[in-house]
Amino acid sequence: MKRYLDVYKQGMYSALQSAAAYRMNFIVSSLITLAGNILFPLVTLLIYRAGTSFPGWSLYEVLLIQSVFTMSNGLSSLIFGGVLWTTMSHVREGSFEVILLKPLNPLFFIVATTFSIDSAGLFLGGVSLFIFSAMHVGAIPVLYWLQFAGMFIAGTAVLAGLTLMMAAISFKWVGNSRISELADSVLHIGKYPLPIFPKAVQAAATMIIPVGMVGFLPASALLGRMHASDYAAILPCFLFLAAGIWIYRHMIRLYEGVGG
């Protein structure tokens, strides 16, 4: 275990060193990501400014959903963000053997060596928006914070599972840089209050591909809008992550290299 921690620590350190070497690129990327975060809830702001709303949801409640989504996305990108592109690149170039030869679990090695410090801007942007919107939704009891923490971790697990599944697809759909768009399109559902969607979409977004857990359900927990049945959505999140790991490892076994 200690060995794994040491490798991960070294991976983080290398990522920081690399960002320091190209610091201008890092600063510009982070600033653009931060600006993107500020502009992301613009659609919501404009909708409310036009005098209308998502039925039953105030502006700050919707912003809370979107900030939780951004934070979860930022955290997941920090840890798993590089897995898809690194896997895709190795498979395309036929150099995945180089990773298979390392005396470590290949999936862990890729995760540890692709710590995406660039995503710090995304996470921090989400945190800023979260603080801003949480300050406008009234007092939040400690119990709700605890529920939120559990849901937030489950949501991040969904994102990690989704990333691993997309990376697994890249073993067969070689070199398709648009694979990530598949995940992004589905995740779009998680940025808005789930009740605006039909029951079938709500069920799919909580039980099958639980993207509702990425933004909507953790924010609902903070707002005290959880129903007892919503807790049932936690288990599918971790099953989804487990499925992502299983599929990724299965695809490694199917990998056919050309000598690296």
Binding site: I47, T52, P55, Y192, I196
Partner: peptide, 8 residues
């Protein structure tokens, strides 16, 4: 669905 809900 967003706009159907928003229009109400």
């Amino acid at each position: 669905f967003i706009w159907t809900a928003v229009y109400g």
